[in-house]
């Protein structure tokens, strides 16, 4: 693991610990209004300052992080399961079913996704579970394609044939071999999808279509902080910082995972790079391209 990835992983862990631990340790209840300290800057009593009605911002940032991360993780997990299932079935069954299933994926690719999220929320109301489902229903398309391609490759692999000859059922083969082999790329993909989901949730919340008070999320805190960007900059700075750190580190960690776990990208780490290319003698039978 290189330094950059280590920094990112450390920050990510820090944010995670903060969101979980801060509400437990903080002396302030997330809903408690301190009437004597409405929109006050960071101080020894309120480390992150207070929000627009005098609630402790540190506690609310952590609570918001719990919501944002829960939504992101739930939606991504749903997405991942959906994509795994769809891709594996399409790839394994093949033939007409594969064609139809992948065409459905193509159709969904044409949906302008942020528009769809907004539409879903407008149509079905401001229910966090629908937000999970809506986001989860959209982000799985890439994964379905990845998994299908892998499954297709594997279907013709020798060990699958061996398993089949040994009398294993199709379901068993998919579960045992295919899923195990796509787990790596799927994990990398999941990590790389997280930022997108976090950002989508924050925009939906920014429009006022996300979860409702007294619950909160980073998007909501940012939306509240923007009008006070000058008069109470801390109300924007802390949630925005937390969101940016999370998205940045998840992206870096995801990149790392993909470089190492996705066979399509393995050459990035195992390949020669420029320096190695220069130092290595070319194989003699280089196919004259």
């Amino acid at each position: 693991m290189d330094t950059l990835t280590r920094i990112a992983a450390g920050l990510l862990l820090g944010v995670f610990v903060f969101t979980v631990a801060a509400p437990l340790i903080s002396p302030w209840d997330a809903d408690h209004i301190d009437w004597s300290a409405i929109e006050t800057p960071p101080s020894s009593t309120h480390w992150f300052g207070t929000d627009l009605v005098g609630r402790d911002l540190l506690t609310r940032c952590a609570l918001a992080g719990q919501t944002s991360l829960t939504i992101a993780l739930t939606a991504t997990t749903l997405s991942a399961l959906n994509g795994l299932f769809w891709g594996a079935v399409a790839g394994y069954v093949g033939g007409r079913a594969d064609l139809v299933m992948m065409r459905i994926v193509d159709v969904l690719y044409g949906l302008p996704f942020i528009l769809v999220v907004i539409l879903l929320v407008v149509v079905f109301g401001q229910n966090p579970f629908l937000l999970f489902a809506g986001l989860g229903a959209i982000f799985w398309l890439d994964l379905a394609r990845i998994v299908r391609a892998q499954t297709l490759q594997m279907r013709s692999a020798a060990f699958i044939d061996a398993a089949r000859l040994a009398g294993a059922s199709g379901f068993w083969i998919v579960r045992r071999h295919v899923l195990r082999n796509v787990a790596g790329p799927a994990l990398a993909w999941t990590t790389l999808t997280l930022p997108g989901v976090i950002l989508a949730e924050s925009f939906v919340s920014f429009l006022g279509l996300g979860v409702q008070e007294p619950a909160t999320s980073w998007g909501i805190l940012i939306a509240d902080g923007v009008p006070s960007i000058e008069s109470a900059p801390w109300t924007l700075l802390f949630p925005a910082g937390l969101l940016a750190i999370s998205v940045w580190s998840v992206g870096i960690v995801g990149d790392h995972l993909r470089d190492h776990l996705d066979p399509l990208h393995r050459s990035v780490t195992q390949g020669p790079g420029l320096r190695h290319a220069r130092e290595t003698q070319p194989p003699k039978q280089g196919n004259g391209s």
Binding site: D2, P195, A244, D259
Partner: peptide, 30 residues
């Protein structure tokens, strides 16, 4: 990509990663 895994690569990708970390709802008003 010319030198994957080197310090230069990681540094550049770290900076490039900021692009996605600053969403429009924050970057715009600032």
């Amino acid at each position: 990509g010319m030198q994957p895994g080197t310090r230069l690569d990681r540094g550049l990708m770290g900076v490039a990663g900021l692009g996605i970390a600053l969403p429009a709802i924050i970057l715009g008003p600032v």
